[in-house]
Design a protein around this nucleic acid. Sequence first.
DNA 1: CTCTTGACGCAAT
DNA 2: CATTGCGCCAAGA
Length: 113
Amino acid sequence: MVILDKESFKKAVYDIVRLIPLGRATSYGAIAKAVGYPNMSRMVGAIMGDCSEEKIPAYRVVNSQGYLSGRFAFETPTKMQELLEAENIKVKDNKICNWRKVYWNPLQEIKLE
DNA sequence: CTCTTGACGCAAT
DNA sequence: CATTGCGCCAAGA
């Protein structure tokens, strides 16, 4: 097992995020798992902090509970919610309503690939 | 070099 | 269902 530096990890994470289907969302932990590091959920979040300069749908990434933990990283705290609602994802009190339905497991897609 | 903090997750209580 | 505690790794002070 090699030490995965932020740049490499970042790249892998972006790849997963880009695969998120329209109208769905996933969690940091799921992405971390998908890249092969189940316990690196924090790193995924840290990396998302840089996503502002990247062109990826970071707003589709929330915590395992479906809460918009990183809404303040956007231009406006409400931007993330609006973007999600624009994709038919209902958000209530900074939390995705049909989270169980909206949740998208990257491992499923990757397994298929 | 040590300590704190952070878009987190999960098992135990 | 809510709280608590612990793990995990990187970056900044």
